[in-house]
């Protein structure tokens, strides 16, 4: 995964760098590329934060590459990373019919002491459109982005207690053990912000971002909230991950600092 991300960044940079010579825009004082760090943050109003149910701040770290392709348009590429917690409020039963025709139910109880840990890496591609009258990267902007989300959901040894009614008289009770699932998803984001250039070098960026994770919407529309219809723990966790990502991306404040590279 890491290789893929680094590879993508390198390919984008190598492709766009020579293009600066052919840019339609003169750039800011001749510079077309901005490199920088950004942080998206918002209080965890519903979901937990990583490893804790206490009140906290969800925070996404990002490394950004922006390239001015037109007077008021920037192409944006960024790599971002965040960690947060996932809480499952429900007990769910997984039913299977064995080869003897008997229905076997396994009950999963979520141990609410510790949330599941969701670690996500994102690759973002998008465009920033600056307001008329100034040249990018100065002034107010609107940004549209596609965010590819590569998530890893980790559960600890105590996260789930299972009851298996293999024999009703003597159900098995135990812990599921540690494990992780990897899920891929994507989000669409829309940002409103403003950028200032300081000392003709630094670029200060601040704003607000709204996002949507379509997979979570689809799940909700399909009325798949009923866990009983889900066949495996993986599908349950996938859905929970998508929902968490949805809440995570819904609204974020944004601040960033970059520099005009070349």
């Amino acid at each position: 995964m890491r290789f893929k991300e680094i590879f993508s960044v390198c390919i984008s940079a190598i492709t766009l760098w020579p293009l600066s010579a052919l840019a339609q825009s003169p750039g800011y004082l001749g510079k077309h590329v901005t490199l920088g760090y950004s942080n998206n943050f918002f209080p965890a109003l519903i979901g937990p934060v990583a490893k804790s149910y206490n009140k906290g701040l969800n925070s996404t770290h990002g490394l950004n590459f922006e390239y001015t392709i037109k007077n008021r348009t920037n192409f944006c590429f960024s790599f971002q990373r965040f960690r947060t917690g996932v809480n499952i409020n429900h007990t769910f039963i997984q039913s299977k019919v064995d080869s003897f025709g008997n229905t076997r139910n396994t009950t999963y109880n979520f141990d609410s002491k510790e949330p599941l840990l969701l670690q996500t890496n994102g690759l973002c591609f998008g465009f920033k459109f600056f307001d008329p009258g100034v040249l990018a990267p100065v002034g107010k902007y609107r940004k549209f982005e596609l965010v590819l989300l590569f998530s890893k959901l980790t559960y600890g040894g105590k996260s789930f207690i299972i009851f298996d009614n293999y024999t009703n008289a003597n159900p098995i009770k135990g812990k599921i053990g540690t494990g992780e699932y990897k899920f891929n998803s994507f989000a669409l984001t829309y940002s409103l912000g403003r950028q200032r250039v300081l000392f003709d070098l630094l670029v200060l960026d601040y704003g607000i971002q709204f996002g949507v994770v379509p997979a979570a919407l689809v799940a909700t529309l399909n009325m798949e909230s009923d866990y009983s219809s889900l066949s495996t723990l993986e599908s349950v966790l996938r859905q929970e991950t998508n929902r968490r990502l949805f809440r995570y991306e819904t609204i974020n404040l944004h601040i960033g600092l970059g520099f005009l590279a070349f």
């Binding site: 825009s25 800011y28 004082l29 009258g133 100034v134």
Partner: peptide, 23 residues
């Protein structure tokens, strides 16, 4: 001619003048 909203700080002036002069 350009019309915009925002502070007329040095960055904005740079942005406007540089574009004009680059052409």
């Amino acid at each position: 001619t350009e019309e915009n909203k925002g502070r007329d700080d040095k960055a904005m002036l740079n942005s406007l003048l540089y574009e004009s002069l680059s052409h």
